[in-house]
């Protein structure tokens, strides 16, 4: 069943049209990846879903239209977005960052449980619990950003270039965790420039170029597609 569906979505920054009629679907339980080069419109797609940019077209989540609602409402309905560049709150502690992720959760016990769960995925965060977010390494910050998003127990996780600026070994760890989250039932929309690794863990993929989807299909088919190979896997 499709959990998230975009149909003919256009997005605008003032007069600039950054998305020119995009359609994509994410089904429950899938990892779907959206790949493309700089400025293709990947982040804009995620921002459109969250209500951070002005859009036209249909965006439905769980069968309901969400295209025109404010970001905080979309988030509280179960869409967690880990933005590009991590955007952790650098002057809040790790603990406070996680609490903010759980802002819509009223039950203190539940927050505690999920914090413990976050430590299982990311043991480093336990050691850094009282530390200011901004003093952590890039990899740790990315882990915190994902952990923070998980605190609301979302129905879908949107990840914007989680591998950005990280050492290969850390990227591997993060991708392992993404895969594990998915195995436990999390639906994931993964935006990446790192097309090879993204397609390896994804079920399906979309290729975006200058605001348009130019290709879509099973991840392993895209991996072996000549055009994709030439443009994104070189």
């Amino acid at each position: 069943m499709s959990l998230l569906q975009l149909q003919n979505v256009h997005a605008y920054y003032g007069a600039i049209e950054a998305l020119k009629g995009i359609s994509l679907t994410v089904n429950e339980g899938e990892i779907v990846t959206l790949i493309g080069s700089n400025g293709a419109g990947k982040s804009t797609t995620l921002k459109s879903i969250c209500g951070q940019v002005k859009t036209q077209g249909a965006i439905s989540f769980n069968g309901r239209e969400i295209g025109s609602q404010p970001p905080h409402q979309t988030a509280s309905e179960g869409i967690a977005h880990v933005p590009e560049g991590r955007r952790i709150f650098s002057r809040l502690t790790v603990k406070e960052n996680l609490e903010m992720g759980a802002f819509s959760v009223k039950d203190k016990k539940l927050i505690k449980e999920r914090t413990e769960q976050a430590f299982v995925y990311f043991p480093r965060l336990k050691e850094r619990f009282g530390q200011l977010g901004g003093t952590m390494s890039g990899g740790e910050q990315q882990m915190l950003a994902i952990a923070r998003a998980l605190m609301m127990k979302p129905r879908i996780l949107l990840l914007d270039e989680p591998s950005m600026g990280l050492a290969p070994i850390i990227v591997e760890q993060i991708f392992d965790i993404i895969q594990e989250l998915n195995r436990e039932g999390m639906t994931i929309l993964l935006v990446e420039q790192n097309a090879y690794q993204a397609l390896q863990i994804a079920h399906r993929g979309y290729v975006i170029q200058t605001g348009e989807i130019i290709m879509e299909g099973e991840a392993n088919l895209l991996l072996s597609n000549d055009q994709v190979k030439e443009a994104y896997l070189a």
Binding site: Q73, H81, R87, F89, M100, G101, F103, R148
Partner: peptide, 24 residues
């Protein structure tokens, strides 16, 4: 308090705070 921390979060990064379901 939660709202106090949210205040600091909004002061640092309004956009991201809204992604945490904080009504800015």
């Amino acid at each position: 308090t939660k709202w106090g921390v949210a205040m600091r979060a909004v002061a640092q990064d309004r956009e991201t705070a809204s992604l945490m379901s904080i009504n800015v």
